[in-house]
Design a protein around this nucleic acid. Structure first.
Lengths: 341, 341
DNA sequence: CTGAAAGCGCTTACAG
DNA sequence: CTGAAAGCGCTTACAG
């Protein structure tokens, strides 16, 4: 019982191998009826192309490049797992490279990917999804690419994101429903769109419950543990302490917990702390952090599909199909009160 | 300027493509002189095989499987990056799967890798490097595999590790040299070999400086943040406080820092805290943690080489060549005093 | 819109 | 120890 190949489908359909190949590659020059018949047989036989053969004859690389800021960041490692899982079924390789904090390196990495490694597609992870020069280069070279959670020039490429606004709304509402009255917020990095969206979700959730917080309950952070410490020190030395803090990511939430402990506050009895992202940190610290799980692995799988699945037909994606919003999940853990009391 | 292929080398050497192929695949049935000549030309021309062609004709998979406990663990993500980087130059794919904490799943994952995915080689990450059933299965099926930091049956396969004993010795000695007199230790998970080695390194470093710690300065942990909290609570409520704590990993060190802060102790002025591993956590918390960097990326690169590089000749590795010890690095950061005072 | 031919770069299996 | 032939499963380029 050897693997199904083009020839098998061709014989079944009574056409040439060439015609089957055209269907598999979405070549428009096939009669609709023929196409449908072949597609059906391919599906029935559970055909998947032999990548080695395809690569050998087409001189396509079957590489997908992933460009990130730090390859060992938690976000990235989860993304990688999702991408690898998906690639396992479609035969593509992942090539990864990182700017290691030097944003200006992004341009050279991307051009290297295009010229030397000759990737068939590229994925830009935040914050590298928002570098105009990189976007220009990719457009000029006609390299298919997908961005994750981009903030600028949304029509430049297909992109995948989650509804940060609604998630922030939900987690804030969860705090309200569990009896919190004084909910502070630490905003994320100023120049990232998600920070704005999460802040807005927080504000709107409060408003919809007719709650108004004093301005000193809002602190500006930078998505780092350290910035979380600074913000938490301010929030926890206010005259009227908040009874909950919603930090815009888990790192800052972890920092809030550590300052609360230092100030002899019981988490969550005296103060609840919630984060965002569900990174490893959220499960590693104690108490474990109530947070929003981003669908990172699914985002990765979809990104790979968009770039590699011929049925997704990257080329003629209409503006409508460019935006892909994936569902998130609220994870309730020990860092927040479970019931109103 | 197209890529060098077997034919080019064959013409240069005045032999057939077949003979060159044999040399590239380490087939012993080639005259030594011919072999040397061909190898030299291949090197000069910077030949690297076309994986697609090779895979197509040989029906080898060119997949390397990595089995880990949690694919998104920091250790694993760093390992992945190293493995991917290496694979980029040799054309292998990485297939990853995780037991997600169910150790008994390891056996089915490994057999799936062997039977269905048909990997050409396998890498076992700790703690999965020490499951006797898995080792038996791999030996029976003659699947080449490499283990990372194994603890049992060291002759079963080539393995890669670092000198945990010496690293623990060094970081303890660093604490002594920077003026610490009362150095506590939190031991790692009881059933992992590295915990023993690190503990022993700590003890011997103290002894070599003629220091003796009271028994209550030694706590048993489990490599988790939570176990670090428990241990730290005990250590920091002793009558005579330690002036330094060496935790057997970064997670527990982070926990010590947080308890110290809670107890209004200044880190590092009143108490220094050092960890082990240099995971992301060590750089994310504040103060950042002085720790030992494991050469994880290099371990990954070497593991891939051992499995894929024909020159490494996996098959006839002598017992001597089975053990590969890679160098580590001591990273001094803000969680420990820099000078004796 | 469809097909016959040639070839991608390697390896397997067979001769010698 | 070495080589000539055939083929892996697909695609490119050319015909019709």
């Amino acid at each position: 019982m050897s693997r199904v190949k083009l020839k098998d489908i061709a014989e079944r359909a009574g056409v040439s191998v060439m015609t089957v190949s055209r269907v598999m590659n979405n070549d428009p020059k096939v009669r609709t009826k023929t196409r449908a018949k072949i597609a059906a047989i391919a599906q029935e036989l559970n055909y998947s192309p032999n990548v080695a053969a395809r690569s050998l004859s087409s001189s396509k690389s079957f590489f997908i490049g992933i460009v990130c800021e730090f390859a060992n960041a938690n976000y990235v490692s989860q993304f990688l797992v999702g991408a690898l899982t998906k690639c396992r079924t479609n035969g593509f390789h992942i090539v990864i490279d990182e700017t290691a904090g030097e944003t200006e390196k992004a341009l050279s990495i991307v051009s290297d990917f295009i010229l030397i490694t000759k990737v068939d597609g590229l994925i830009l992870l935040p914050p590298l999804a928002d570098i105009p020069e990189v976007l220009s280069l990719l457009k000029e070279s006609h390299t298919p690419f997908v961005r994750i959670a981009p903030d600028i020039d949304l029509s430049a490429s297909p992109y995948i994101c989650m509804d940060d606004y609604q998630a922030a709304f939900d987690i804030t509402e969860h705090l309200v429903r569990t009896g919190h009255k004084r909910i502070a917020h630490i905003i994320g990095n100023e120049n990232q769109g998600v920070s704005r969206l999460r802040y807005q979700g927080y504000l709107d959730a409060l408003r919809s419950h007719r709650l108004l917080m004093p301005p000193e309950y809002i602190e500006q952070g930078e998505f780092t543990y350290k910035s979380g410490l600074v913000a938490a020190e301010k929030l926890l030395s206010l005259e009227v302490l908040p009874d909950a803090v919603f930090a815009s990511n888990d790192e800052m939430a972890a920092a809030v917990i550590s300052v609360a402990l230092k100030n002899n506050l019981d988490v969550p009895k005296q103060i609840s702390v919630v984060g965002f992202d569900d990174t490893e940190l959220a499960r590693v610290v104690w108490p474990r952090i109530t947070t929003i799980q981003q669908p990172i692995r699914d985002m990765a799988g979809l990104a790979i599909s968009l770039l590699t699945d011929p049925l997704m037909s990257f080329q003629d994606s209409t503006p409508m199909a460019k935006r892909h919003v994936l569902p998130y999940q609220l994870f309730i853990r020990e860092s927040s009160k479970q019931n109103a009391d």
